[in-house]
Structures are given as structure tokens and as C-alpha cells.
Amino acid sequence: MATKTTGKPAAGKNARPFYANHSAAQLKEALRRMYLIRRFEEMAEESYVRGLTHGTMHLSVGQEATAVGACMDLSNADYITSTHRGHGHCIGKGAEVKFMFAEFFGKEEGYCRGRGGSMHIADPATGNLGANGIVGGGLPLATGAALAIKQRKGKDVAICFFGDGAQNEGAFHEALNMAAVWKLPVVYVCENNQYGMSVSTARSTAVKDVATRAIAYNMPGVTVDGNSIADVNEAVSAAIERARNGEGPSLVECKTYRTKGHSRSDRNRYRSKEEIEEWKGKDPIPAFEKDLEAHGIASRSEIDAIREAVEKEVQDGFNFATSGTNPTPDSLLRGVTTTDDIAMGVEA
């Protein structure tokens, strides 16, 4: 997505910054990406249930505002690291769903040539360094990407997505401390969906708000409504600006909720139906649509057109994947090291 403030602002200067600082086209693109994430994941789940894909996957249904709101002011030169629940970040950063579906189907056309699957999906061309199967695995990696930017005196930033589970890992402490000591251009975006698998943050975490942990690293920390794309974007935008100006890292906590289970094995024994229903009522997508209509940025028919276009893109992507190329067993060592690749006569 283009950097912010390109094109005519969508709303007058009295509107909140999210609407005043983005063009109508940017905001509609943001809505499109939120749909795309939702429909991609629903279709991916259906494929799994129908036995068309194997393995497991972690759905972020309900969390789309955080992924899109955090990514919408980044360029391809900016990095993100993602999590095991990373489909939204991938699409938010600009990935195409047809290559994502191809990855899920284990095809050569997939983003990782079918070697990574859902948990390692990545798109280095758009600056996405990948989802991660290890909780907290991306925290040092994003910090390192930010260090590389600083070493080359660049103006790019790294966004590190992580969940409430990861902030209890040691890597969180080590990475945030180092980023603050070295004033690295990185924004830590905590998607607090309130459960680390089955254990609630109330049972796992000594503080009520993850953002308060920023105090320990002498960096700004804010908690926002992760289901409001405007709230997320404004907070992350401010943090990005700080990072680009050489003022160092920030922590943004986005309180949100996954309305689906942790993964396919989840029987939802740790939370009530009422709680899930309550959060379904806070769905970020209709809320954003309502705002776009209220600001006169998108009409109902435009919104419907976006929905239809996404429907087609998802169906086309699914079809693309099912007719993809299966890897051959003799390509097993491809990508293990560059030496293996050279021996096999393949290029990266």
C-alpha cells in the first residue's frame, strides 16, 4: 500500500488523523484487505475441513483491523515479522492470496514453494520476513532487521507482530531492551487476543496491560482498541514516525480477540459462548464500513463492489492453487543451504 498522505485526504482536517491523513483510495484499499483476510481464512478453513489441505492453521478472524491498520503506512522496503497467526499480516503487507493458497496446497507456486505452509508463510519481496512457528521467534528477528537498517543508515522501519503469549517469553525482554538501548527503528505491535492458546492473560501475565511493560524499556507504550483500524493505525503511525526520526522503538498493544479457536484442535473449553458472541458483536469489518459511510468516503454500493471483487479474487486464488505444481521428491534438499542449491543447479 502506498505511503500515507498520497492523494487527496479522505476527510476534512477536523476529522480524526486516520481519515484526514489517508486518501479515500487508501482507506478503501484497507477495507478490501480486511475482507481479503477474512474471506481467505474462511476459505482456507473450508479447504482444511474438506480434507483438501493438511497440517494445521491458526486463524485470525476478528483481528483484521490490527494487521491492516499496522501495515497500511509501510512500503515494501519496510520489514515485518509475523506470528503463527500470520495470514492477516501477510495480506496486510501486500501478499497475493493466490500464492498463499498455493502454499497451503503445498505447491511450487506457493510463497515458500510449499516448504513452509501456513506457519512459515512469507513474502520477502514485500518486506515480509515471515510467520513463525515459535512463539516470540520474530522478536529478535525484527529487532535485527531494524539494526541492519540502522547500520546502513536507512530510513526504513521494522514492525514486529507478536501475541500476548510471546510477551512472556525471554526473547521479548532481550529484544525490547536491546532495541531501546540502541534506539532501533522498530515498532512492537502486540496483538493481545487475550489467550495464549487456552490460558488467559489474566492467568499468565502479571500486568493488566502489556503496554505498561514498555516502562521497563524506557520506550512509549500505548494500549488501543485492536478492533478499530483507526485506533491501531494512528498509534502505529506515530510509532513509525518516531522510528523513522531516529527516536527509537515503541510498543503498541492492540486489544483484540480471535473468534475462532487457537487451531483445529481447539474445543473452546477455556472461554464461554457468551464471551465469543460478545466479541463477534465487535467485528472490526462492519465497524469500519460504518465509519467509511458516515464520513462519506465509501457508499454502500462501493462497499458491496469491494466485497464482490474480493469474493472473485479468493475463488480465483483457490482455483489457481488447486491446479498448481506439486514438488518432486528429488527437490527435497532445495533451499537447505545455498551449497545444496548450487549443487542442484537452481537459483534462489
Partner: peptide, 28 residues
Amino acid sequence: EDRVRDTPIAELGGAGVAVGAAVAGARP
């Protein structure tokens, strides 16, 4: 000091930061 960079005593973070920097184009 930028190129001979003292780190905190934090091997997981330090090694991981080196890995991230390498992926992002540096040669740590």
C-alpha cells in the same frame, strides 16, 4: 562502536538480532 558492537548479556536476543540483521542485508 557501531561496527564493534557491545551487546547486553543476552545470548538469545543477541544471536537472534544477528540473524534478523543478516536476513535484512547485513553481514553480522
